[in-house]
Design a protein around this nucleic acid. Structure first.
Ligand SMILES: [Mn+2]
Ligand SMILES: [Mn+2]
Ligand SMILES: [Mn+2]
Ligand SMILES: [Mn+2]
Lengths: 223, 223
DNA sequence: GAGCGAATTTAGCCATGACTAAATCCAATG
DNA sequence: CATTGGATTTAGTCATGGCTAAATTCGCTC
């Protein structure tokens, strides 16, 4: 069994590798920042993970998960996303509260527990914030969503996924009706990285900062 | 926050102190055996817990939880028993499977999670094996049950609580209908610590070993 | 009251995963 | 191509919670 710390590093590295460009290596400092530890601590753990053959480490360059490492990471991601959804659906959590709880539970549940909540949820493929849920076999769907922040004036789209990193942002989005499935139209893009004026659903309008819009992933509505 | 190890020691010491005679101290070797560690490791932890004012340690004699220690122990016990019940009621676990899962989850859930499953279960006062569930304030009911093993021939009783220590025993009891609420009559006590011949419910009879009967707690039916 | 044996504690060690401070590397700049 | 500053690694330390082996204590028996 992998320790809780190892599991959390793998999960973070997996996510970082998918946030960066394909082929790019994940750097020590990125890992350290994400894990909230010093760079020296990150280096320590990287050496251990390399020893365990969970990643390849090119000193001074960065790391890349091995197939085994990816598999282990996806196992944790699956636990996390199933748990988030379960907390939301079965225990009435708000979507900004589920991440913290799942971050701890993901290491504590058994495979049996995983299977039971999977069944209770009807074998979902998408999580509480729209992220794909890896299958038990380690496959994960690739969604080609675009960032709301990158949409052009006049375009319409549906919100399909939202970053779960910041609870405050999630509450803010919730208050303004910016939830999964909501239709959004870009009315106006202010210059100098200014806010987007958007139509939310049928009759709401909002000026949304670019910072927030970068955390929202959308599917473009057929023109 | 107390570490997982500290929490588990407190829980074990609490249970051991209630299994022994009132006023008796809990010994190092008992703790070591229950925690599956060496006696030296137990001594180490005892010194740390004494330092934390969670118990009083009389060297070479034993330990006794302080009021704070009891409070902390009951907090974990509450988590454990609520979780066991929730796993059983909401996720369909068998009663021999819940203990292991709860042993890990009990350290990972938040107070919010605790409150939510408490509500979902209708604020139960009795756990999956009949144990009293401590209140959020740290009160716990005292049940004056007797061991089935100590009943006399001819006496009738209801099964009210069962030890959750041994999953195999729980499966065995389940197979023979020896579950919570079942009425049992002692037909015959074999000599030399031999088995009890008992009537289970209306029309079942069984020869139950004393070892098993010692793990079953009953309420005597009015004669 | 001496001695014995079991329980307990002490001493010393190890793995894990943090940290700070110092050394080292490397890419960019002049 | 030498310099330099930021990123990375190394070195050394600490806390936690295990372990074994050795020393110590205590209750019991002779
Ligand atoms: Mn985590
Ligand atoms: Mn799993
Ligand atoms: Mn536990
Ligand atoms: Mn609690």
């Amino acid at each position: 069994m992998l320790s809780e710390a190892v599991q959390d590093y793998l999960k973070s590295i997996y996510k970082l590798s998918h946030a960066s460009q394909a082929g790019e290596m994940v750097t020590t400092s990125l890992i350290a920042e994400r894990m909230q530890v010093s760079a020296a601590s990150a280096t320590n753990m990287i050496k251990k993970l390399a020893e365990l053959r969970l990643l390849d480490h090119t000193p001074y360059q960065g790391v890349e998960l091995t197939p085994t490492g990816v598999k282990m990471a996806l196992e944790i991601v699956r636990h996390h996303r199933l748990l988030e959804l379960y907390l939301r659906q079965s225990l009435g959590y708000d979507w900004d509260q589920v991440d913290a709880e799942a971050d701890r539970l993901e290491h504590a549940i058994s495979e049996d527990f995983e299977d039971r909540i999977d069944r209770a949820l009807g074998f979902p493929t998408v999580g509480a914030h729209g992220e794909p849920i890896p299958s038990k076999e380690g496959d994960i769907a690739v969604h080609n969503y675009r960032r709301l922040a990158d949409m052009a004036e006049g375009e319409r789209c549906w919100i399909r996924q939202v970053s779960d990193r910041d609870p405050a942002l999630l509450r803010y989005l919730d208050e303004h009706g910016l939830i999964l499935g909501t239709e959004v139209e870009i009315r106006e893009r202010a210059p100098f990285r200014g806010p987007l004026r958007i139509a939310i659903g049928v009759d709401r309008e909002h000026h949304l900062g670019l910072e927030a819009a970068e955390q929202i992933y959308v599917e473009i509505a057929a023109a």
